[in-house]
Simulated scan of single mutants.
Amino acid sequence: MADDLSRDVQLLDRDLVAVRRDLHRHPELGYTEVRTSQIVAERLRALGLSVRTGVAGTGVIADLEGERAGGTLLLRADMDALPVEEQPGHDFPSETRGVMHACGHDAHVSALLGAATLLAARRGRIAGRVRFLFQPAEELAGGALQMIEAGALDGVDQALGAHVISPLPFGVVATRPGPFFAGIDTFEIAVVGKAGHGGLPHLSVDPIYTAAQVVTALQSIVSRETKPGEPLVVSISAISGGNAANVVVERVALQGTVRWFSQASREHALDRIQGIASGVCSALRASCEFRVLSSSPVTANAAAPVDLVAAAARATQRAEVMDPGPLTVSEDFSEFTSRVPGCLFTVGAGGPTAAPHHHHAFDLDERAIGLIAEIFTRATLSALRPE
């Protein structure tokens, strides 16, 4: 039987979907989420909350004070989109060429605004403070740390974050205590050769050919140097260099990521990436430059917040909770959980046939938006319940 909260979520649902679709039409990359943060701030101020803007550039923080003293619970949503050209199957496509919400952050923003609306109407049931945090640049693995450095965690006792997850259908909430999402290092390898004429390759050093051999050789780190069963992923996902068919270019840049769950695996992978790239380049008369662009630790959930979220999800009466095991995707929400007890949970918004995250046809089951808002709200009312 639906309670007053479930009914209020149903009444909010149409507005939350409209907000998500508006944000989807106007995606913004990391640290450029100006329009998004303006919409967020306006809605939070309309709820009577104390709002701070410009945190870490485009981040927004708002505090809801309960009617009694107590602890502080942080609820977080990420706001940034991805540099992906959308090929939509719906009538609200991105209006920004080469940028789209391909990971569901538009839904996360809408859901947290929904939770703020629901909780502001229940201020009398809160002992303590709810901090709503809208974060820039999650996809760049930097926004969370910058917000923390700007004071986002000051006085916070616990932190909760949510993410839609494409492979799971609506009605499934996945989380677990302990390691949940992998740590990540984003790196770049610059392969430097000697420019020349495409018809006289012997007078040049071809960095494109050399880069191709580097990409192939790096696959040995997981397949031949890592113990079977040890979760480690090394991916090269971007290659750039050259713009003419008859020119041997001087330089090629490779960018990729390492996903890991142990510090030993991380250190080994980063060391071997550099060593293999250097060795292959040297053998082919080229040179290389290696650098780590950004890093985030493993997202490790604390047991008590996981139990809090699981109970809240079950209380909605429209979700089952499962432990999917550690996943080799990454989230800089880990910066929060490495400092305070917290829980990142995922909400099914697709299914086996859905397009994966970061895909040009990514979409989501919009029922997940209201479900996330309801879980946030129920978990908060439980965590900050007056004695």
Rank of each mutant, 00 (worst) to 15 (best):
R45I: 06
V233Y: 08
F290C: 04
G54V: 12
A107Y: 03
G161C: 12
V321A: 06
G48R: 10
A211M: 09
V258H: 01
G178M: 11
A238R: 14
E387W: 07
R123D: 05
D154C: 10
A217C: 06
P201D: 03
E28F: 00
E33N: 08
D106R: 02
G54K: 13
T117C: 00
A102E: 07
V55F: 05
E250N: 10
V340I: 12
F180V: 04
A283E: 10
M1R: 09
L82V: 09
T346Y: 07
P201W: 12
A310P: 00
A69R: 10
P352G: 06
P386I: 14
S330E: 11
V329Y: 09
E149I: 04
V252M: 07
R45L: 03
I372S: 00
L344Q: 06
V60S: 00
M322P: 05
A315D: 09
H357C: 11
V309Q: 09
F376N: 05
A269H: 03
T32H: 15
V9G: 00
A141P: 00
A81F: 01
E138C: 05
V298E: 09
Q274C: 09
Q135C: 05
A244L: 13
L47E: 04
V17G: 03
D63S: 04
I189D: 02
T257F: 12
A253S: 13
E335H: 15
S287I: 10
F376V: 05
A102Y: 04
A217P: 01
M79Q: 07
S223T: 11
K194S: 07
G242T: 12
L254D: 00
G351T: 13
L16K: 00
E335S: 08
G325F: 05
G59L: 09
I148D: 04
A162L: 14
I372V: 15
L82D: 03
G183F: 05
M147Q: 08
V306C: 07
R385D: 07
V9I: 15
F187I: 13
E95Q: 15
P341F: 12
G199H: 12
G183R: 03
Y31E: 10
R20A: 15
R122E: 02
A137T: 08
F170L: 15
P83N: 09
G70V: 13
L293P: 07
R291K: 15
L218A: 08
I165C: 00
E138L: 02
S382I: 06
A354M: 15
V173N: 05
R21K: 15
V17W: 08
I221V: 14
S235K: 09
V55K: 01
Q263H: 08
L133K: 04
A18V: 01
L254S: 05
L160A: 07
I236A: 04
L254P: 02
G128F: 02
D8Q: 15
A264W: 10
V252L: 13
Q10V: 13
R176G: 03
V51F: 04
T72S: 04
P83Q: 10
I375T: 01
G350F: 11
Q10C: 12
F336H: 13
I61T: 06
L74F: 11
D154K: 14
V19G: 00
